[in-house]
Design a protein around this nucleic acid. Structure first.
Length: 1102
RNA sequence: GGGCCUAUAGCUCAGACGGUUAGAGCACCACACUGAUAAUGUGGGGGUCAGAGGUUCAAGUCCUCUUAGGCCCA
């Protein structure tokens, strides 16, 4: 019978637990679970936060400071809530949570208000769909008030779900005090901004050709055009080659100018023909007449014109300028200045078509530019619904795409010489040379997917071109992540910035605050920038049906007044000031959020001036032409500052197959399922540790999310579980937060504390630089050291109940929980509160690295120790010496043995050797191990001096053609090297019998004694027995602290080992009764031990 | 057609200033270790650094061209 170890009695009772001090777990016992179900813990923490109002406390316990200087300013890019959140929203949501949480812990006050984008076409389209209407006329018929009520309802439809998702992802943001772009206060600020721009002369009304959706009856801005990848789709259109008859007297009179177009419907609006001045043109005979086209295009018309047509005229484009021709259709036959050949050198190419381009003023951007220059008024026989109107009576009421075929039929008939109804309004002499079908990439509306047309519309513009230079300058002050966005995607976009069309002929939006006289004879234009100005002039505010001030249509449209500049009386027909009926582009709202959210300048003027620009914003990279851009425009124009000083523009979240996420393909894990199965912290870690925050794209996989749990969350949790288990067993309560908790003398403790200090320093620097992915990697590496080195090597000391071990681990857990809490807010909350009993880790301060002991040389030494252990393991493996077999000794030869000396016991234990010796590399004994020197040439140093010859020296060092002379001169490959140009390393030679040697990565080497004596073998068997008994205890369901009665039988070697090492085996396995018998006990468990020996074990709880 | 970015192990990515044996995590195989761990350790397989040319004593790294992909613009 062995005596139990002396420390055992204190653990026999199951004492009241010290840890967790508090937990949200309501289950019996409240023990720290060894295998936690994270999603359940998360739900409990979220409930606790809700009840405790922790978020509000975290904001309010930080002082704003004088003039808000202690505030960190974060702008929330407002989402549109008529759909559910997806991974992209979650991703930005996590960043929008991490940065403010971190800054709060750093002591800053960080207000976080949620914002909603509410206006715009998506809401209108949804309202139209719900009400089964398709046109703007039907909206007017329905009543703009009713329609806008429907829009208002649709944009708020999913706010509840949004709040649920955002709350579940553990993002702290104020939903109750949110801002909405449709609130009167926000809209008043938008009006102020418009007026501000107008006062600076940066707003003008113009007629511009824009991509236009005839289905939604609205023009699109250029940044709306490219909303997504599906905007450009292949489409088949008829392409026609048409000849216009030249009317200018001279040799070319009667020749047909051949033009080519894929939009035959624009031909009735033709106003000019464009040529390139330097392009070579020819006229060739064709069917008794002649046609004119670019020489380079002749070959592609060989079918109609023959392989070698007779050329009757040659010339440059400039020779053609000014020629007149008969318009192809007669609708605008008398149009002033029209039907001439004009130059458009940059627009006309000879890569396709005929080298002559027909221009229909208002239906193309270049067309408009050219006709403006030529003094030709554009014509617009197409209505807002995309259908022809007066004077194009032949196709009136017809959608332009549908009119194509009729137009072609008429051209055909005219070409045959027919007239009257068959040829429509086609003028005699106009010929259709070719009709083909053309496949091309064509833009479609990003909302309704109908093909767009280009169409001239009246619109108001912000004259971005007037201050884009300043925008580019201010962009230099913004810190972009990734860096190349600044002068790349964003900078280039700024360089090419065009004036911003900010008005929409729609209903649900902020009103254009411009009132105009309805009689051009008495012109007047008023711009309003506040409710007060409106009330001043109109005698009242715009009020909705409920009587509340409301700037939406139709209420704001009701405000009219007599034109003060019109001296006539109402009876004489005095003109009236009426509002321009347009609403503002919804992007104007989002660009206004910085001041709009606080109703600047009507309220919070001081606050705003101290909180602009924002310290930080984040959105996906596409916002370089969206929100980032509109914020920057308005900030530059109104305040001459950037709107934000740091910006992360992250990449795109892809589905598990690497394609865009698609609901129909189901190629991504369901968000709710991930929350339920893996939890919000796991998803947060997965997204934040990924390359997506460095601008790369990210493939979302379930495996990736689970890896986050495995690599980080479980190791962290298990460290806590380990601590709680032994602290409870010892009834030890650590003094977290007090200086003495950092005072351990134990080398492992001191190492961990110093390592923790380095970790906190590095993490702080990374989070300060918004390098969130780097912070994750740093944390992962640190937690690995914590759990797989410190805890594993310290198990014995915890088992022994060493106070300084508890103190150290508790202190480090406290620091780590605080440091990791922005990255894993839920799990760290449960651990930290369990450890400290405190209210919330998120109310704690960011750990101060300087309070932790600094000891870089200790950290370096321990890292070397880990290398020694690692290399020794490799030696064992190579020599087939299992780890449980003790070996006599290990000799460690390094430059500075004294540095490693304190860790001799750690190494001996880790690699299971009886003794560890340290030798200086230059000692006599070390040289006895058959060491040899190796020379390496430092090419970086020697290269510049030796030039080409450095290669000879390198070759010599490798082949052994080198030497060290008596005076220390080193020669390699016949070349003398000077100090610094070479390195001499000591390498260990072949080991003698009974030893194995290995080099250390950082220099030095190991000699492992591989001689297995009978005693060592016997102890190895004893260790195997311990291991087997422990496994059996576990399999039998015994508790760690249960005592057992143990019986061992087996082969003579087993019996000998069991008897010789009774104290070891009984002690390790908590055996209060210990029997070694030759006869195997019935019901015993056979196990393999040692080198093929069999033992039989039997145990019972004592 | 132009601009920006990317191309490195089966997968995801690191690789200051050019320096001669290109790394990590995951995955795979084998062995070891394990009464905190859902782990861990050791070893192994696995690479034309997209291709071609150039600069250089020396190129994954710098230059040119090509190819492929992404984003942006026309």
């Amino acid at each position: 019978m062995a005596e139990p170890q002396t420390t055992i009695p204190t653990r026999r009772r199951r004492p009241a637990m010290t840890y967790p001090k508090v937990t949200t777990d309501s289950a019996d016992g409240h023990a720290v679970p060894s295998s936690p179900r994270f999603p359940e813990i998360e739900e409990r923490i979220l409930a606790y936060w809700a009840e405790d109002d922790t978020f509000r406390a975290s904001v309010e316990q930080r002082d704003a400071g004088a003039n808000g200087e202690n505030e960190f300013v974060f702008y929330d890019g407002p989402p549109f809530a008529n759909g559910l959140p997806h991974y992209g929203h979650l991703l930005t949501g996590y960043v929008k949570d991490i940065v403010p949480r971190y800054q709060t812990m750093r002591g800053k006050r960080v207000e976080r208000r949620f914002g909603w984008d509410t206006h715009g076409l998506p809401a209108e389209l949804e309202a139209m769909r719900l009400n089964g209407i398709k046109t703007t006329d039907e909206i007017v018929e329905m009543g703009i008030d009713k329609f806008n009520d429907a829009c208002r309802a649709s944009v708020l439809k999913y706010t509840g779900e949004w709040r649920d998702y955002v709350t579940r992802q553990a993002r702290w943001v104020d939903f109750d005090n949110d801002y909405r772009t449709m609130n009167p206060e926000f809209m008043e600020s938008v009006l102020w901004a418009f007026k501000g721009l107008h006062d600076k002369g940066l707003v003008y009304e113009g007629f511009r050709v824009l991509p236009y959706c005839w289905n939604d009856e609205t023009p699109l801005s250029n940044h709306e055009l490219r909303m997504d990848d599906d905007v450009y789709k292949m489409r088949q259109d008829p392409a026609v080659t048409v000849g216009f008859k030249i009317t200018t007297p001279g040799e070319l009179q009667g020749t047909r100018l051949l033009i080519w177009t894929t939009t035959p419907w624009t031909l009735p609006s033709n106003l000019a023909v464009m040529v390139g001045s330097d392009i070579d043109y020819v006229a060739v005979d064709h069917d008794g007449t002649s046609v004119l086209l670019a020489q380079a295009r002749l070959a592609s018309y060989s079918r109609e014109l023959g392989d070698e047509p007779t050329i009757t005229w040659r010339g440059k484009g400039e020779d053609l300028l000014g020629l007149t021709y008969a318009p192809p259709f007669s609708y605008f036959a008398d149009h002033e200045n029209a039907f001439r050949v004009v130059a458009a050198d940059e627009a006309v190419t000879t890569t396709d078509g005929t080298g002559l381009v027909h221009s229909a003023g208002a239906f193309g951007e270049v067309d408009k530019e050219v006709t403006d220059r030529e003094g030709i008024e554009p014509v617009m026989p197409v209505g807002k619904d995309g259908r022809f109107t007066h004077p194009v009576e032949d196709y009136a009421g017809m959608l332009v795409f549908d009119a194509n075929l009729h137009i072609i039929d008429h051209l055909k008939a005219a070409t045959r010489g027919e007239q009257g109804e068959a040829a429509g309004a086609v003028t005699p002499g106009t010929v259709l040379l070719r009709r083909e079908t053309y496949d091309h990439s064509y833009p479609h509306c990003w909302r309704c997917r109908e093909p767009l047309i280009y169409k001239g519309v009246s619109s108001w513009f912000v004259e971005v071109t007037a201050f884009k230079q300043r925008m580019m300058e201010l962009n230099q002050d913004i810190r972009w992540t990734p860096e190349h966005i600044k002068d790349g995607q964003f900078g280039k976009w700024l360089e090419n910035a065009r004036d911003w069309s900010i008005t929409r002929n729609r209903f649900w939006g902020s009103p254009v605050p411009v009132w105009k006289s309805d009689d051009p004879a008495y012109p007047r234009l008023d711009v309003y920038g506040s409710f007060a100005e409106i009330e001043r002039d109109f005698g009242r505010l715009p009020r909705n049906a409920a009587g509340e001030p409301d700037l939406h249509r139709p209420w704001v449209d009701d405000l009219t007044r007599p034109n003060p500049d019109d001296p006539r009386t109402p009876e004489q027909g005095q003109s009236t000031m009426r509002r321009v009926t347009d609403v503002l582009d919804v992007w104007f709202d989002s660009g206004s959020m910085s001041f709009g959210q606080v109703h600047y300048p009507f309220e919070n003027a001081e606050w705003f001036e101290q909180h602009f620009p924002a310290d930080f914003i984040v959105e996906y990279i596409g916002q370089t032409r969206g929100w980032f851009y509109t914020l920057h425009i308005l900030a530059t124009a109104l305040f001459d500052k950037p709107a934000f000083s740091s910006c992360i523009s992250h990449g795109i979240v892809l589905g598990s197959d690497g394609n865009k996420m698609s609901k129909s393909l189901r190629n991504y894990p369901d968000v709710s399922e991930v929350f339920d199965r893996d939890g919000a912290d796991a998803m947060r870690w997965f997204l934040m540790a990924s390359p997506i925050l460095r601008g790369g794209n990210l493939v979302v996989t379930e495996q990736g999310i689970r890896d986050a749990v495995r690599q980080v969350m479980i190791p962290l949790w298990n460290t806590w579980y380990f601590f709680a288990l032994y602290a409870n067993a010892e009834q030890y309560e650590a003094s977290v937060g007090r200086a003495e908790s950092l005072g351990s003398d134990d080398p492992l403790d001191r190492y961990l504390l110093a390592k923790t200090r380095q970790y906190v320093e590095q993490l702080t620097a990374e989070l300060d630089a918004y390098a969130i992915a780097d912070a994750c990697e740093t944390t992962r590496t640190f937690i690995d050291v914590l759990t797989n080195w410190y805890v594993r090597r310290s198990r014995e000391r915890f088992w022994e109940g060493k106070p300084e071990a508890f103190e150290t681990l508790a202190a480090v857990l406290d620091v780590v929980c605080r440091a990791v809490s922005p990255l894993l807010p839920l799990v760290t909350e449960e651990i930290w509160r369990g450890l400290t009993g405190g209210r919330s880790v998120h109310l704690a301060d960011w750990p101060d690295a300087t309070t932790l002991p600094a000891d870089d040389s200790l950290v370096a030494a321990m890292d070397q120790v880990r290398e020694v252990c690692s290399s020794t393991s490799a030696l064992r493996k190579a020599a087939r010496l299992r780890n449980r077999l003790p070996l006599a000794g290990l000799t460690v030869v390094v430059d500075d043995p004294a540095a490693l000396q304190p860790f001799a016991a750690i190494i001996a234990d880790e690699v299971n050797v009886k003794s560890v010796r340290f030798l200086a590399a230059d000692s006599e004994e070390a040289r006895g191990y058959g060491v040899e020197q190796k020379l390496t040439v430092n090419a970086r140093a020697a290269g510049p001096r030796l030039g080409k010859d450095v290669q000879l020296a390198i070759k010599g060092s490798k082949s052994g053609d080198w030497s060290v002379a008596e005076d220390g001169t080193v020669t390699a490959g016949g070349l003398a090297l000077v100090e610094g140009e070479y390195g001499l390393e000591t390498h260990v030679g072949e080991a003698a019998d009974g030893a194995a040697t290995a080099m250390l990565p950082g220099g030095g080497f190991l000699v492992l004694d591989t001689v297995v004596t009978a005693e060592l073998a016997e102890e190895g068997v004893a260790r195997d027995l311990v291991r087997a008994v422990q496994q059996l205890r576990r399999d039998s369901g015994l508790d760690v602290t249960d005592r057992i009665e143990l019986t061992i039988s087996g082969s003579p070697a087993v019996l000998a080992a069991a008897r010789a090492h009774e104290a070891l085996i009984a002690g390790e396995t908590l055996a209060t009764s210990y029997d070694v018998t030759e006869a195997g006990s019935p019901g015993g468990t056979p196990v393999q031990v040692g080198d093929g020996e069999t033992a039989t074990l039997a145990l019972e709880r004592a």
